[in-house]
Design a protein around this nucleic acid. Structure first.
Length: 423
RNA sequence: GGAGAGGUGGCUGAGCGGCUGAAAGCGCCUCCCUGCUAAGGAGGUAGGCCCAGCAAUGGGCCUCGAGGGUUCGAAUCCCUCCCUCUCCGCCA
């Protein structure tokens, strides 16, 4: 969430910031509830202070003495006043909190203003689409013999649409990609984590999935747990309620997890084959950094992500997302899209985001600054990378009807074979 | 899943209705002493919120797993939930 003091003291800046995003929220309501809240807190505290001092006077009197009983009577009245005021206070604070939770993060000044994905800014491309991509390229879902190795039909039977089985060399390739991405992250100094894939509502709220994306997560009603849509959720929450020493920052973690997304309402042409699954594998990078360095740290992370695609020789482009297209908790976001030569389109394989202090405030993750005072850290994360679309790009870009699919050099060392042959 | 025990500050652990935001010890920080180290001495060491102030800071309120309840008053009594430990059962 945004610092309430910032909302109070620099209302115009905050208002201007959130108006660049596309989320419905009512800043005036927050401010109105905030002043009601502060007013009632002052009243309640006055009563409380009276109660406390009368109480300690009474404690010195002999029990049952007339003066004692007199005090009890006096305190009874104070107590009743307190209780009714306190009820009002709790209600106001709850409303205030809920209103505040619906306010999105403010976009950074470097974020282009825009309404939709059409306003995103392409900041660079890498690789030669004609040179790096096979001339035989076809969409991966149009390669008949691959249906045995990427088995959607049995996925439908066993679970439902969007839950394929990977088999044989494709299963091995998926495993190889996970290992390659984790190894690269380790080399860059990210400590590896294997987190739980179910989280509670507190965790989902802290990272911003709740209340914003409630309907996008699978929910286990019996135990009131959510299946994670990304490793970001459990990994960021690892340090919920922690206070770091300044010299402990930056903290860097990587994690592989399956990710679960209901993708409600996103039917259409983009969902074919591997392009959009309900369950997919992803390696995620998460960093906790000093507020002053977070945008530099974000650029470093982006470079690490790009390095992965370069090593796999997959052409890609980097987009700087516009204010209307970045997420609820985001201050700045880059998307990295790989070229899928068969479909002849870009597929998003990574999102590299700076949440500034927005998540840290919700999750109560802080560090001690120069004056030893706790302050929220900045949190960042980035996919490195989402596997199925990388897989799609490898299949499509490296395909030849003669040799099958050529495995990128970096993965040959892990998997042993250079090609996935036609069955 | 069943039976019992328990959840207090960075840690160990006392308190079991008012004088306890919390004894004592450990750890950590500052200072003193000291040829160095060790030992010793003095003090300090949770977080949040509200008010005043440009700020340093000061005043107040809240927090003893979470949420309810009893009471003028709860870390302390009662209820519900969560978690940990021990034993039994079950099981990768």
């Amino acid at each position: 969430m945004i610092d309430i003091k910032l909302i109070r003291e620099q209302t115009d800046i905050v208002k201007k910031g959130i108006s660049k995003k596309k989320f419905d929220c009512d800043l005036d309501l927050v401010l109105q509830l905030d002043s009601k809240r502060r007013k009632i807190i002052t009243e309640v505290e006055q009563i409380r202070a009276q109660q406390k001092s009368a109480n300690s006077e009474m404690a010195k009197l002999p029990k049952g003495a007339p003066e004692f009983l007199q005090k009890v009577k006096e305190l009874k009245e104070l107590s009743n006043t307190f209780k009714s005021l306190n009820t009002d206070q709790l209600k106001i604070e709850e409303d205030w909190q809920n209103a505040l939770l619906t306010i999105p993060n403010i976009p950074h000044e470097s974020v282009p203003v825009g309404d939709s994905e059409d306003d995103n800014k392409e900041i660079r491309t890498w690789g030669d689409i004609d040179k790096l991509v096979s001339a035989d390229a076809v969409p991966h879902y149009d390669i008949p013999w691959l249906k045995n190795l990427i088995d959607f039909d049995n996925g439908v039977k066993v679970t439902g649409a969007g839950f394929p089985f990977f088999k044989g060399d494709i299963a091995r390739l998926v495993r190889g990609l996970i290992q390659f991405f984790l190894d690269e992250a380790n080399t860059s100094g990210y400590i590896e984590i294997m987190p739980p894939v179910l989280v509670n509502a507190d965790s989902a709220t802290a990272t911003g999935q709740l209340p914003d994306k409630e309907g996008q997560m699978y929910y286990v009603t019996n135990d009131e747990l959510y299946l994670i849509p990304t490793a970001e959720v459990p990994v960021t929450n690892l340090y919920r309620d922690e206070i770091f020493k300044m010299d402990e920052l930056p903290i860097k973690h990587c994690a592989y997890t399956p990710c679960f997304r209901r993708e409600a309402g996103s039917y259409g042409k983009d969902v074919r084959g591997l392009n959009r699954l309900h369950q997919f594998d992803k390696v995620e990078l998460v960093k906790w950094v000093h507020p002053e360095s977070s945008f530099d740290e974000q650029d470093k992370m982006l470079a690490e992500i790009e390095g992965l695609l370069q090593k796999l020789a997959l052409p890609y482009r980097v987009l700087l997302m516009c204010s209307g297209d970045i997420g609820f908790p985001h201050a700045k976001q880059y998307d990295v899209e790989v070229w899928a030569g068969g479909q002849k389109r870009w597929l998003e394989v990574s999102s590299c985001s700076n949440f500034t202090d927005f998540q840290a405030r919700r999750a109560n993750i802080r560090f001690r600054d120069e004056n030893n005072k706790p302050r929220p850290v900045h949190t960042l994360n980035g996919s490195a990378l989402a596997i199925p679309r990388v897989l799609a790009a490898i299949i499509e870009n490296n395909f030849s009807s003669e040799n099958g699919i050529q495995i990128p050099n970096e993965l040959v060392a892990i998997l042993g074979n250079e090609y996935i042959k036609m069955l």
